[in-house]
Design a binder for these strands. Structure first.
Lengths: 213, 213
DNA sequence: CCAAAAGAAATTATCGATAATCGCTTGTGA
DNA sequence: TCACAAGCGATTATCGATAATTTCTTTTGG
């Protein structure tokens, strides 16, 4: 079978979705490529329905673009598109930071664990790991607000996938990427809500500019 | 035929979608109600596929909730849920305001038109109109950032639908609601980006608290 | 009388087939 | 030669039917 079978309890359309996400992220399906429903269905050994469903869902997250009656295409990860994502992250995470302060000040372990993960990944030169734990770190801030809607929206930005693409392609200094999170952690531990917001926003700005060569 | 036929060129699933949105907003499908695919299909005279597709899409916009293999349900518009929406709006619109400043300072007509619409609606005691133009006003701020992703996310919050529900049910003073937007307009015309952000956030706060009786 | 299990009913997920539509190619007439 | 229309191949949108799963009901054993 072509689609991953990792999560046994998953629906077909979810498996298909994960597979397509992977292939878009790793470049197997390059930007602009047309994704034909029946073609993918054949490739994955399923019928059109789950593929169509997966594509529609990915379209709502902007990983692909669906034009009615015409088809769906892999979105270009152009600089402009990435900039839009970073701006939205800035809005969400910046606002989330102050709201998350009480919870994370009381228990900063989610941030600490993520930082520890990043450091270990940096030590072993593990780009995947950096992407994962960096995502964990930022996600923890949103989680700590207790706002499920914001978390859902944040998740729909596919931060991990995009971070991975950036890290893998962009020759990012892994150690520096890990340590860049330290001031934010410290602000939650011993700073103020406003400082947290400020640092999160600055952090976002750095990365929204860095990734271009 | 049960589904509206207004836009002739629309796909079935879009017609179905619009119909469901209408019925959720006007309370025909009350919060918590289970929406059974084949049942709706029969009601609308279509097959399961377009209904399923419509429901999935509405699920991605959070108007309904889809639980895999279990069904989809109309989301409750509880106070908590509304608070989450307002917090996300605060994050998006607050951040958008400063970024929108140059464009709206140069040409504040979208805001002016929306305000004019609100005033007219208030004069004729038109709750629908207030909801529509108030939505236009806030949306214009997001539009002016030029960030399509943020606009899509903002749109997915169904601000107009929720505003309408609030206005219709909540005995809101229409004149006051209209005039509350004046300081924001003035800030874009003759203030600073930071002031815009500040006022937009305050405006959001007011309304995130007002609607409870 | 109650808890667990077996069976039945309802509903979602998926399938394979067909209808509708789109974009391209080819042919036609000026 | 070129604008345009008819025809064709490819693909999306929709259908009706079936498989898989969940939920509800009933039965069984203690």
């Amino acid at each position: 079978m072509a689609v991953s079978a990792a999560f046994e309890n998953e629906s077909l359309s979810e498996k298909v979705k994960r597979t397509i996400v992977d292939r878009v992220v790793d470049g197997t399906y390059p930007p602009g490529m047309r994704l034909v429903e029946l073609q993918l269905a054949k490739e994955f050994g399923v019928s059109q329905a789950p593929v169509r469903e997966a594509l529609r869902e990915l379209s709502s997250t902007r990983l692909v673009e669906n034009i009615p009656r015409r088809g769906t295409f892999v979105r270009s990860a152009s600089q402009d598109d990435l900039a839009e994502v970073y701006f939205v992250r800035l809005a969400l995470e910046g606002t989330a930071a102050a709201a998350a302060y009480p919870a994370l000040h009381a228990d900063p372990s989610p941030l600490r664990n993520a930082l520890a993960g990043m450091r270990e990944a940096a030590a072993t030169n593990d780009a995947h790991g950096i992407a994962k734990y960096s995502t964990d770190f930022h996600r923890a801030v949103v989680v700590a607000t207790g706002n499920r809607l914001m978390l859902e929206i944040w998740d729909s930005l596919y931060v991990e996938a995009r971070t991975m693409a950036t890290v893998v392609r962009g020759h990012v200094d892994l150690h520096a990427a890990a340590e860049a999170h330290v001031p934010i952690l410290e602000a939650f531990e011993s700073g103020t809500p406003d400082l947290c917001t400020k640092l999160v926003i600055e952090h976002q700005h750095e990365y929204s500019i860095l990734p271009q060569e």
